[in-house]
Each structure stands twice: as structure tokens, then as C-alpha cells.
Amino acid sequence: MTGAFDIILCLMILGAAGIALFVRDALAAIAFFIAFGNLLGLAWLGLDAVNVALAEIALGAGVTGVLLILARARLLALGDDATCADTSAWLRAGALAACAGFVLLLAAAVLSIPPESGLDRAVAPLMPGLGIENRVTGVLLAFRAYDTLLESFVLLGALVAVWSLAPAGVWPGRPADLGVADVPMRRVARSFGRFLLPVALVMAAYLVWAGSDVPGGAFQAGTVLAGGLMVSAIGGAIGLPRSDLPGLRVALVLGPLVFLLIGLAGMGFGGFLVYPEGSAKAAILAIEYSLFLSIGATLALLVAGPNVIGWPDPAGGTDRHSDC
């Protein structure tokens, strides 16, 4: 019985991906891409990898969908409706042959490896030492904490990169106003924002706390928080902050910094990112709670995009769009 579910789901995933890539209209492509992200979340549920399903549904369908919708709108306002020019038949034929060969090779390689939960047996005996039961959180924050530390810096780095795209002379302005122009819609979005932000905060706090024993974690929680922040910004319930607000900068850096400090403190217990005996859970929760705040703020600002609205600099008027 489960076989039918997996096969139908996989066929729908391939169909949604194919349409998302090759349909002419840009919005149809994005709508199919959001559906593709949701179906992928189901694929991870089918694989009983609920941690990944949470991340895929929250990040893949939620944040990436919003990101692409806003990007398409901004391109449309610039007169670019993101439809593709046709490529030459030769290029298409050559690419088709190459990719088909690539898929066959990849499929052969994949089929030659019998799927089995290899490292699960290696991780299981080490879990009691950490005091948590969720093995994925154990891997993410204890056995491979180094990757997660770098990942939190990559997220921060991406925000710095997006901010660096602001036109010259607009620093330290604010991102484009996300507010809705249409008044009835603004009221609906505002009330949804006022409902969603507290719920997102509670949901995120629950996900981080539960993340040590049942599926959850800082990244999934951060994404839910980012969703709440985005809707509040769209509804005008909250304004987008100036990039140089000290409070904002602390919030953005808090997660990675706490992670790094706890990692350095580990030097006293045997090595970088080694948690002291018996208090691993406390260290992990301290890291995760500071991390999810930074991730929520960072993702929301990543979606808001580079600064566009300059700040009236008392020294000299920074006009909004100085030619760069």
C-alpha cells in the first residue's frame, strides 16, 4: 500500500517540477514551484524524515515562494515579465542528450547502493551522552556542530551580500516598503500579521524546545518566525528596520556569536565545539534559542531585499537613486 503513495507522489513531484521549469508564464512557474516545494515536504514525510519535512515545507514552500513572488513583482515593475527567449534547437538537443546520459549514470549509481540507515547505528549509542533523543539535532548540534556553525555564518553572509547590492549612497537606508497599497488588503494583512506574529513566536519557541527530543529545531523555528515577521511587514503592523539599528545588528549576530563563543568555551573541555560533560543539552538549547532569533530576522530581511529607501543624512541629502 505505501508503495502506491510513494510512486504517485514521486510522479507528481516530477510533473510539478517539469511544469514549474518550462511553463511560459512566470507566476505559473512560481505557483508550481511552491506546489513542488510542498510535495517535496510530503516526500520527506514519506521517508519518515520529519525534521527535513519541516525544513522543506517551511523554507522551500514558504520563504522561497515569497522570495520569488516578490522578485517577479519587482521585475514586472521594471518591464521584465520573466518569460524565456527560445533557444536554438541544437542547444536543446545537445543539452537533452547530455542530461539524459547524466540521469542514466546517476540512476545506475543510485540503484547500485542499497539504501540502509548506516550511521543511525553509529549515532544511537552516543545519544544518551548528550541528554537529547532527537538524533538529527544531535548530529546537527553536537557531532557535526562545525557544519551548523558555518551554516549560520553563511546565512549572515548572504544578508551582508544582499545588503551590499544597495545602490551607492543609500546606506544605511531601509529595504523597499513591503506594505500593501490597497487599503482593504492592508487591513486584512495587518490583522493576519497581528494574529500570526505571536502564534509564530510561540510555535517557534515550541519547535526549538521540542527539537531536542522530537522533530523540530532552530532552523525550522526561525523560518516560522520569519513568516510571521514578513506578514506583519506586508500588513504594515511592523515597519522594516533601518539597517544600522544597533538592536537589529545584535539580533542578527546573536545566534552565530553565541554558537561561536560556546564552541570556543569548549576548548577547555577537550576541543572546539566540545560540550562539557552532562550539560550538553543546556548548551544545545542555549545555542538553538539564540540561533532561531537570528535566523528569523535574517530570513525576513533576506526576503525584504537590498536597501532602497535612503535615510536623510543630516550631513548631505542622500537622494534615493544616485546613479551607481
Binding site: A61, G62, I69, A181, Q220
Partner: peptide, 18 residues
């Protein structure tokens, strides 16, 4: 999470198409 974030995408669409 699916229920909360599906509505976020629709809100973003409403804002962008408004």
C-alpha cells in the same frame, strides 16, 4: 507549519499584485 506559511505566500502575492 504548512497552514501558517501557505497563507504567507498568498499574502506576499496579494501585496505584489496589488
Amino acid at each position: 507549519i504548512g497552514t501558517l506559511l501557505a497563507a504567507v505566500a498568498v499574502t506576499a502575492f496579494a501585496r505584489s499584485a496589488a
